[in-house]
Each structure stands twice: as C-alpha cells, then as structure tokens.
Write a protein that binds this DNA or RNA. Structure first.
Lengths: 255, 255
DNA sequence: AAATTCAGCGAACAGATGTTTACTGAATGA
DNA sequence: TCATTCAGTAAACATCTGTTCGCTGAATTT
C-alpha cells in the first residue's frame, strides 16, 4: 500500500494541478480540440513527455476538467435548492448566485459553454451526463411540492431541464457581459512561459481553482462599481425570464 | 465591369461551394479552430494555395458559413412567425419545423451550436449578431399583440430572447437525439479524398446546400418510421416547455 | 488574332505537432 | 543502509501545418 500523502505524491498532485490550471487558462482563447499538448506543458514549464505521467491524452484532461468545472457549479445549485424562500426571493438569489459564480470562476463557465457542443466526444458526453444529473437533482427538489398538485414525473423533469438549460444560458450570457465590460477585443496581458524546472516554488495553495482572474471578489451585498451595464441587463433579463417561467409553472395544471 | 456569369465565374463559385461543403462536413467531427486549411483543400481535391483565391483564412470561411447556416434558419423562423394560428397550433408547428430543419440541415445546426461559443472570435460574434437579429424579429412579431396589453418593449425583448434561445436549445437537442438514433459512436462511412484535378465533373446543382446527409425528406404529416424514441421525447419536452412559457406570457401582466 | 486576366498548381519554407526512447536522481520502503 | 520506484528530462522521430513563390493555360477582353 502507498501512503496517500508523501512528498512524492504531493509534488505529483501539484504538477497535475498546474497542468489543469494552465489548460483551463489556455482554453479561454481556444477550444479543446485545438489545444496542443506541448502548449500546455510549455505553459507549466515542464517537458512534453511529463504530460503522460498524469493524463492519457488531452481529452482525458478535458474530462477531468469537466468534473472540476461542473463540480463547483454543483455546489452552487445545491445551495440554491436548499433555500426555502418564496418564488421571487429564490429567483433573485439564483441570478445573484450565478452572476457571482461566473465572476469567480469565469474559466470554468467558458470551458463548459465551449465544450458542451465542442469537438471532443468524451468531453461532450461527460458534460451532458453531469448536466443530466443536475436536472435530476432539480427535479427531485421540485417534486415534493409539484407532485401533490398533480404534476406527472415527466412534466417535473421537463421543468427541471428548462431550469438547468436556462441557468447555463444565463451563465454564459453573464460571461460575455463581463468580458465586454473589460477590454476584451484587445489581447490581455501575455503570460510568460513558466521557467523550466518543473513546478516547485511558490508557497501556500490559496484559491488556485479560479485559474482565470478571480475578480475583485466583492461582497455580493455591497455597492458594486465594477458591475457593467451589460451585466445588469443580463441579470434583469434572466430574472424576468425565470419569473415568467414560474408564472407558467403556477398555471400549468389549470389550462 | 465583369459579367456576373461566365464559365470562369461559374467554376470559381463551384470550387468555393465545394470548399464550404467540405468544411461543413469536416466540422461535424471537430471544431473550427482545429480545422486545417490543408484538410479542407485535400477533401475537395485542390491545392492548398487555391484556398486563398476564395477566403483570407479559415475564420473568414467560418463567417461565411455562419451566414449560410443561419440564413437557412432565418427562412424557417419567418415562416413560423408568419403563421397566425392559435398558441398550441403555433407551438406544434414550430417544434415540427425545427425538427424537420435539423433533419434536413444537421451540419448547419451542429456548426452553429459548436461555434456559438467556440474558439474563433469573429465567428462567435457573427453568430451572436445574427441571433440578436432573430430576437429583434421575434420581438417585432410579438409586439403588436403584446404592447397594447401593457408590455414594455424591454419585456417583449426578453420574451423574444427566451424564444430564440429555446429554439437553438431545442435544435441541438434534436441533433443529438437524431445522432443517437443512428449508430453514432462508431465512425461513419469514410470519405475518400477527392480525386486531384479540381472540381470539374458532376452535373446539375441539386440541393447542394445540405452538405451532410439531407435525410429521407419524408412528408411531415406522413407516418415516420425513422423517428427515434429520443427524438419524440425531445419534441414532447420542447412542446411542453413552449406551452409553459406561453402560459407565463398570458399571465405576465397580472402577477 | 493578340493581349490580358486569374483560378489553380507544385514546390519549397520554417516551424510546430504528438509520441517514444533511454536516462537521472530524489523520495520511498525493507 | 541499500535496492527500488517513478516524476520529470532531453533528444530524436516522422508527420503535419500555414504561407509564399513563380508558373501555366484556359477564359476573357480588346
């Protein structure tokens, strides 16, 4: 048996993370099927061959990234579903949470949006499966209040799918809005390729997961100067759409 | 001034079409940013350098494809908006039209879904602009009946965006369902690279635009043996979702 | 009939790609 | 202490990429 934490394993895990983070950052400007293995290792500062110690190939890396990116979304969804407020409050909280999530993990959302219908089958399927799971969860959360009102399970499911799809839609809309807020068209600050010599330096793993400009991280309830006009418009639209859906839901069983 | 149709121009147009069709077909299995220029010319049976006689680069080709793919969708949308039936009839007709469209032009839909958030900015922006135009059109179609009921223009717009996004969503769902119907995971019949010697043979331009298995083209009202279970499930879900949205729309102005 | 245009060709280019190979040397475990 | 494990290395590989160049020969114009 091998220890689950030695200096050895820790270093390996660190390099693995570095590869994932580098990939996630590179994937902000291109899609997975055009991402090069050497490109990733170069960004990390590691020999190309080292890649194979961690992933079979790039689509393997991609599937791993799916788990990570949708994992963080999963937490958010569960938090929302746990809230037991009224309709409008829940909607506000949802839109707020999505906006905040996109602000904190823009690279995650970009990756999902891009690869959901992207060129790599394994990744597509992983995303589809995960989103399907989300829909299950949403359906399960709504069932207790809907089933007694005469909603058949398939109708609950279609509502859940609508919610999930709308959430993804909203998230990507936020992403574009936030990108438009910053100066997007011009190239951002270039990242120097990591100094050769593997990933050894730098202390304390503090919030590595963002991997793409975590943003100001301002308190959601504070006044937010960094919030762009587009972003507020997206929020308002999403809120209204969810409200409209809620309205439809309330009148579903009475023609 | 040059004639708009000579033997010269006709040949050029033919090669151009061949390039676009080949690209569209290749893009069923990969994304634009990973598509190679040589790959396209090879599929057509033309020297790599010939590509530059028609497009500046691949993203130029991509933008052209956007116009074509969304152009065909545009026709469909206008046809739907022109119908003045009741809510349910319109919904049925819409879902039916989308299903048929996806069946006829799967490559078009795949391309749009894949590149909408893909790695090529110019293409992304072209798609966004075009879809925004669709939303304008839908909004304009709904305004006459909604404005008198007290709908502010921004609310009409948000409804239109919801409809457009839902349509795209439904189309890609159909795509996956139809793909699942056929044996997808296994590679389809391989296409031999075109015989060297440019694009000269083959008579009569009959429905070249499909560029990806136009399908049986069965009458929508006939019994359809080729319709998979998944496909029917997608249709049913889409119908219900649209119905639910309609319900919400009817109750929008009375809390 | 002669001059011009221009779509497509073939060759060459510098550079990048994924993958394999034998290796090194520090962490590990007996 | 000594043998083993194994993350990362450096080099070489065959192959592919986008782009430029001058050229050809048929369609076009004069």
């Amino acid at each position: 048996m091998s220890h689950t934490s030695g200096v050895r394993q820790a270093q390996k895990a660190k390099t693995r993370r570095a590869l994932m983070d580098a990939a996630l950052r590179l994937l902000e400007d291109q899609s997975l099927s055009s991402l090069g293995l050497r490109e990733v290792t170069r960004a990390v500062g590691v020999a190309p061959a080292a890649f194979y110690r961690h992933f079979r190939d790039l689509s393997d890396l991609g599937v791993t990234l799916v788990e990570e990116c949708l994992g963080s979304l999963h937490h958010m969804i569960r938090a929302i579903l746990a809230d037991q407020d009224g309709d409008e409050e829940r909607i506000d909280a949802t839109v707020e949470a999505v906006a905040e999530h996109v602000r904190r993990y823009p690279a995650h959302i970009r990756f999902i949006a891009r690869e959901r219908h992207g060129g790599v089958r394994a990744v597509r399927e992983a995303i589809a499966a995960e989103l399907g799971g989300f829909a299950d969860e949403v359906a399960a959360a709504f069932a207790p209040s809907l089933s007694p009102e005469g909603w058949p399970p398939e109708d609950v499911r279609m509502l859940a799918e609508l919610y999930v799809d709308h959430m993804v839609m909203t998230a990507t809309a936020f992403l574009e809005a936030q990108a438009a807020g910053r100066g997007v068209p011009g190239a951002g600050p270039r990242v120097g390729q990591g100094e050769p010599g593997a990933v050894q330096e730098e202390a304390g793993g503090q919030e590595v997961i963002g991997a793409g400009r975590p943003g100001p991280l301002a308190d959601p309830r504070e006044a937010r100067p960094g919030r762009s006009e587009d972003e507020r418009r997206v929020a308002a639209t999403a809120r209204k759409q969810l409200l409209l859906i809620s309205l439809g839901r309330r009148h579903w069983r009475d023609g």
